[in-house]
């Protein structure tokens, strides 16, 4: 029953996004003038840092502007809670890509192609190597005028992972992204999203939702390099307030992102999550 409810919610979310695409006229302007095109360098990454606390790219701020790219990455997360005799390390090998269907529409996906977990409960340890989660989604630009871009995003979490005994994970997320680019070297971005996931399998669904607000900025003093600083706050069973920082580089059309985040408040116990991504923009 919960799965059906979840599916209905996802359907509604995607439909809303599609409606928005169909009904909202998008202002087109000369490439150099509009927000999405107003960028330091084509190969340089943009938008919020793509390192999050949830599965694949769930609950990460999505950039507002469509682009076509393909990349691979790695994400490393650690919880070392000595007083509680607990430790956890997770490493994800990511494959991701996006396709700009048109200037205002992007389809994207992220797969945890390799999902490695190590967890320690007092002196007992275990490891796990599985295929991880897959997300797929779409972004639709709703407003792109002058220095400002506004988009909506929807993505679904598909039950591809084998990591949970007796269960597969299904979920979805709806969000709105914004990008303000007063200068070619400065982007202020934001993201507001809500997500919901639950298990399907022999056990309880245990649906859990969350809402996240992210604001950040990318400072791009060079064509080849940029600094991104984001602050995100999430409400939900697993909540946090977390700064995130990343360095972005580009070599020709190859973008590189090195980032890290850590919660400074909330129930999330991560000590750090760090990641590296490389992608080729087409």
């Amino acid at each position: 029953m919960r799965a059906l409810w979840l599916a209905a919610w996802l359907t509604a979310s995607l439909a809303a996004a599609q409606e928005a695409q169909l009904e909202v006229p998008v202002t087109t302007a000369p490439a150099e003038e509009t927000g999405c095109a107003r960028w330091r360098d084509r190969g340089l990454g943009e938008g919020p840092v793509a390192i999050g606390y949830a599965e694949a790219d769930v609950a990460t701020g999505r950039r507002a502007c469509p682009r076509t790219e393909f990349g691979v990455g790695v994400r490393f997360g650690a919880i070392i809670d000595t007083p509680d005799f607990y430790g956890s390390l997770a490493v994800n090998g990511l494959v991701f890509g996006s396709y700009a269907l048109r200037d205002t529409t992007e389809l994207f996906a992220t797969l945890e192609a390799v999902n490695y977990n190590f967890a320690q409960n007092a002196v007992i340890t275990s490891t796990q190597l599985t295929l991880g989660n897959l997300t797929a989604g779409a972004t639709q630009v709703l407003f792109d005028e002058g220095t400002f871009v506004g988009s909506v995003t929807a993505r679904v979490l598909l039950p591809t992972s084998f990591e949970i005994p007796g269960a597969r994970l299904l979920g979805g997320e709806l969000g709105a992204s914004a990008s303000w680019r007063p200068q070619r070297w400065l982007e202020v971005h934001g993201y507001l999203g809500g997500d919901l996931s639950g298990a399907i399998g022999r056990g309880p669904g245990l649906p859990r939702g969350g809402a996240m607000l992210l604001v950040g900025a990318q400072l791009s003093p060079f064509d080849w390099g940029a600094l991104v600083v984001d602050f995100s706050g999430r409400l939900g069973p697993l909540n946090y307030l977390a700064p995130t920082a990343a360095l972005r580089f580009k070599i020709a059309q190859l973008g590189i992102e090195l980032g890290a985040t850590l919660p400074i408040a909330g129930t999330d116990r991560h000590d750090i999550i760090a990641g590296a991504r490389v992608n080729w923009r087409f």
Binding site: L4, A7, L10, T11, L14, A15, Q18, P159, I200
Partner: peptide, 17 residues
């Protein structure tokens, strides 16, 4: 997009059932 939504609905219903 509608097709995608329908497909997801069907997937969820199948898995749930």
């Amino acid at each position: 997009m509608k097709k995608l939504a329908l497909a997801l609905t069907a997937l969820a219903a199948t898995l749930g059932a």
